[in-house]
Nucleic acid binder design. Structure first.
Lengths: 347, 347
DNA sequence: CTGTTAGCGCGTTCAG
DNA sequence: CTGAACGCGCTAACAG
């Protein structure tokens, strides 16, 4: 039984050693499980004495002290800029899944604090999801000073750190090509039409593809919403509710596309037949819904990201040299926007 | 100028001392700013030598080592169960705002890992947003072993840790009383009607208030949605789109209420006139929108929570004894559901 | 007034 | 199984 009231102070390995009547070295060997495995053998009775003393005191080894000696913290840091973005949640989930069996704890850093924090707080590996304009050189400097880094960026080159690359532009072109093979009245639902914004390249792909096909961009076929799913629903309702509605909808995120499908269904339209809807991002939610969402995006991004990060953290990876992990985007043709050859064209 | 390529190893205070030609003590005094303040004074030339050596090496003091000596990590941990919930984001933002000027870094712990993690990873203070059934005794044990804890819970009593309390039930009763003073056809938009779920007490308040007023609960006045804002929008559209629509809508979260207002407006209804809509939670978003959202909720919860947490972390608080920080819920009557006396009753 | 020596507090780990 | 050194940065006490 553990003592339930304490001194207000944290028990140390010395207290455990004293209570068990052994040396701190023995306690360390027993509790870190290193007895036998290269370290000295500790007899069962002694080990039991140590364990019961530790439990009695509620002893937990101090990770900070351990880190000083071993250089390992059993921690990975995730620096995530947009915590409200479902993308961030997917990263967190994947890393948590991968880290739990290894006894590694993922800690999340909001904002862009990594620039200040990472030099002083240590972790076995760090994932950074966005490198600002002013910090382009920071990853290299941190890596040079011993920080194990995995950076998500479209342009940065590896230099002692890994780079994860997932470029949207060409993939969005694939989507438009797919829709253009069967449709001419293609609407677009997007968060932003302004250049420079994050969604910009996705919208640009729409404009360019239409232009290349000789189709003018119609104002009432482009719906800009505020980023919320309710906004997407409302804007999709407007686009699809008009008399001369588009026969296909290109939506610049899977989450918005799911809202658009709901909106279409509420309008009495059969998605994948009366109207084709396609998203961007390749999220699991889109794959699992009904009708399943056609989309484009990287394959298995989050799990592979998590795997790399934890390989780096534990030092168990196959390739020692940091490099680029590229995620080319693929088109996933599913029910919400099936294939339409010229033969099966509806109009 | 900082050297930009390094050894792959982290520079230590000893390397800085050697490069500057001084002792490690001097380096420590200079870099921690403690020279003069009780400690020895260091001459300007020496201090400059130290600083330039430190910068040349890219030296950053090791927080883990510092923590061992000082017992302070300059870190607070936020253990947040539902990272996708806007509530969590509000906590994070408030704590980040409060922590930044103090040089304290908030680290976020997803899931319910705090039970395993907190004994070994140290922070100056920890916030826990939900204590599961199996862990009711953990906060007391952690506190007894030196962890500074602030727990969000409706029932737990302080025992070496602080408790933040914010009870929804009575507040939701206030909302219903407000609506019942002018309405009889009151609809409800909620995520769950099942007892035991998180939203349950909020829905219960609806049922009980109607019952007390002798009004039966109509099935077509209750809309259950999936928790997404698109779902709220769609369900609100259904509730308000029917012939015999409710004249007031009680929505069990502010975020859903905002979606409901959008839905009502799209249906051509004037909110606050044709239909009253009221939320739960008292979020800033509701306050700032137009029409402003009537709601009920705690006042200033996030900022006061952040303030308490950081007082505990720095040990600067006024009251030394941990206790209960209670947030009684208040009714905020704004434009989306204004006052309606018997005199101004619409029906 | 300026700087150093030496020991502390952790848990780990090598040589006995 | 133990003694003692080790890694880190901090800081009281001391020396110039």
């Amino acid at each position: 039984m553990a003592i339930t009231t304490g001194t207000g102070q944290r028990p140390t390995i010395r207290m455990v050693a004293e209570l068990a009547g052994v040396s701190t070295a023995t306690v360390s060997y027993v509790l870190s499980g290193r007895s036998g495995d290269g370290g000295p053998r500790v007899s069962d009775p002694t080990a039991d004495k140590v364990r019961s003393a530790a439990e009695k005191l509620g002893y937990r080894p101090n990770q900070a002290a351990r880190a000083i000696r071993t250089g390992r913290t059993n921690t990975v840091i995730l620096s995530l800029t947009m915590l409200s973005d479902p993308w961030s949640l997917s990263v967190i989930e994947a890393v948590q899944r991968a880290a739990a069996p290894l006894g590694i704890t993922p800690m999340i850093l909001g904002d862009a604090e990594w620039v200040k924090v990472l030099g002083t707080h240590n972790a076995d590996a760090v994932f950074v999801d966005a490198v600002g304009e002013r910090d382009r050189d920071e990853p290299r400097r941190l890596a040079a000073h011993g920080t194990t880094l995995v950076v998500f960026d479209e342009l940065l080159e590896p230099a002692g750190f890994d780079v994860i690359r997932s470029i949207a532009g060409p993939g969005c072109g694939l989507v438009m090509a797919h829709l253009l093979d069967g449709h001419r009245n293609i609407g677009c639902l997007t968060t932003s039409t302004a250049s420079g914004s994050r969604g910009a390249p996705r919208y640009l792909a729409y404009v360019e593809a239409l232009g290349a096909a000789g189709i003018p961009v119609q104002e009432d076929y482009v719906g800009v919403f505020d980023g919320t799913s309710a906004g997407a629903y409302a804007t999709a309702t407007r686009l699809l509710g008009q008399r001369d509605r588009p026969t296909a909808l290109y939506v610049t995120s899977d989450y918005a596309a799911i809202s658009a499908i709901n909106a279409a269904q509420r309008l009495g339209l059969t998605v994948g037949q009366d109207v084709d809807i396609i998203g961007v991002g390749n999220t699991v939610e889109g794959e699992r819904m009904s009708p399943s969402l056609s989309t484009v995006g990287p394959v298995d991004l989050f799990d592979r990201l998590a795997r790399l990060l934890l390989q780096r953290a534990t030092g168990t990876g196959p390739d020692a040299e940091p490099g680029v992990l590229d995620f080319p985007w693929q088109l996933f043709v599913r029910e919400s926007a099936p294939h339409r050859g010229a033969a099966t064209r509806l109009y």
